[in-house]
Design a binder for these strands. Structure first.
Lengths: 164, 164
DNA sequence: ATCTAATCTTTAGTATGCGAATCATTTTAA
DNA sequence: TTAAAATGATTCGCATACTAAAGATTAGAT
C-alpha cells in the first residue's frame, strides 16, 4: 500500500472518529460538536454576524444558518437584525446559551486533548506542523483542481439524474 | 492559541477540504467520493454482502444501504439476495458500473496525491506517521470516553427536544 | 436620482452519516 | 420441534454539509 493511500486512510479514520465523538457528545450534553463550536464562537466574538461566525468555525454560511435555527429553537441563541445594515443578522447568546457554554466540555474530544497535552513538546510540534501541512496541501489541491475536468466520459454512463 | 486547538482547526480544514472535493468530483464525474469508494470496494471484493462492504470502507451498514440505493438507481450496481442465506444481499457491479470504475479517478484528491508524491521521502514518512498517531489518539479517546459522562447538567438547560 | 453591482442571509435541493427500530431469516437451545 | 436469540439488511428520524439560487439591502457609478 502506498504511503499516500495510508495517509488518506488515516484521515478517513480521523474524520469518522470526530463524527462518532460528536454523536456521543450530543447524547450526553444534548449538543453536537458543530453546535457547541458555534456557541463558543459567538461567546468569543460577542455580537457577531452570521458570516463572521461561518468564517471563524470554517463552515459555509448555509450550514451555520441551519445550525443556528436549531440553537434558536432551543433558546440558546438570539438573532438580531442589524440597525446599521439591514442585510446583516447578528447572533447573540441568550442567558441559557451563556450557561451552556460555561458548563460545556471541549467540543472536541476531551480525552484526546489530555492525551495530546501529555505528549512531549517536540512531538506536539511535529504533529501540529504535519497536520497544518496536510491541510494546506488539500486546500491547495481543491483550488487548483476545480477548473480541470479530469474525467471525461463517466457521465455518459449515467442516467443524468445529476443535472440541476 | 493552544497547540491542541490549532491541531483541531487544521483537522476541521481537512475535513472540509475532503467534503468540498467530493462535491467537485460529483460535478465532474457524477459520483461522490463515498459512492466511488463503495464501487471500488465491490470491484475489489467481487460478489460481496453489504455488511462486508461496510466494514471494508469503514462506514455503517445503514449508510452503505442508502448509498447503494442511489447506485442501484443509476444501474451501476445490482442487488442479489443470497440463495444460501436469504437474509444476505450481495452487491455486484453491472456492466456500466465496471466501466465507471475503470475510468474513474481516485476517489480522493488526485492533485493532492501528486503534490504529496513530490515531497521528499523523509517528509512523506513524517506526515504519515503523524496522521497515524493522531488517528490512534482519537480512536483511543473515543473508546475510553464513551462510558464517562463528563457533562452533568448541560441537559438541564435544554428544552428536552433531544429525547427519542 | 436611479440603475447596477456587490454583499449578506436564507431557502431549496441533494448527499452523507449515524443510531435505533423493524423485518425477515437463521441458528441455538430448551 | 418450536420458542428465543442472533444476524443481516432496510427504514426512520435527525443532524451535518455543500452549492446554487433567491431575497433583501446597501453602496457605487453615471
Amino acid at each position: 500500500m502506498k504511503r499516500v493511500d495510508e495517509v488518506l486512510v488515516s484521515l478517513r479514520r480521523i474524520i469518522r472518529a470526530t463524527d462518532i465523538h460528536s454523536k456521543q457528545l450530543s447524547k450526553h450534553s444534548g449538543l453536537t460538536s458543530p453546535q457547541l463550536l458555534i456557541l463558543m464562537a459567538i461567546s468569543k466574538l460577542g455580537d457577531v454576524t452570521i458570516g463572521t461566525v461561518a468564517k471563524d468555525v470554517n463552515l459555509s454560511q448555509a450550514t451555520v444558518t441551519t445550525i443556528l435555527d436549531r440553537l434558536e429553537k432551543r433558546n440558546l441563541v438570539r438573532r438580531v437584525r442589524s440597525e446599521v445594515d439591514r442585510r446583516r443578522v447578528h447572533a447573540q447568546l441568550t442567558e441559557e446559551g451563556n450557561k451552556v457554554v460555561e458548563d460545556a466540555p471541549s467540543p472536541l474530544q476531551e480525552s484526546f486533548v489530555e492525551k495530546f497535552d501529555q505528549l512531549p513538546e517536540w512531538e506536539q510540534t511535529m504533529l501540529l506542523s504535519s497536520v497544518q501541512k496536510l491541510a494546506e496541501l488539500m486546500q491547495a489541491s481543491n483550488i487548483d483542481a476545480s477548473p480541470v475536468l479530469y474525467v471525461g466520459d463517466v457521465t455518459h454512463h449515467l442516467t443524468g439524474t445529476q443535472g440541476r
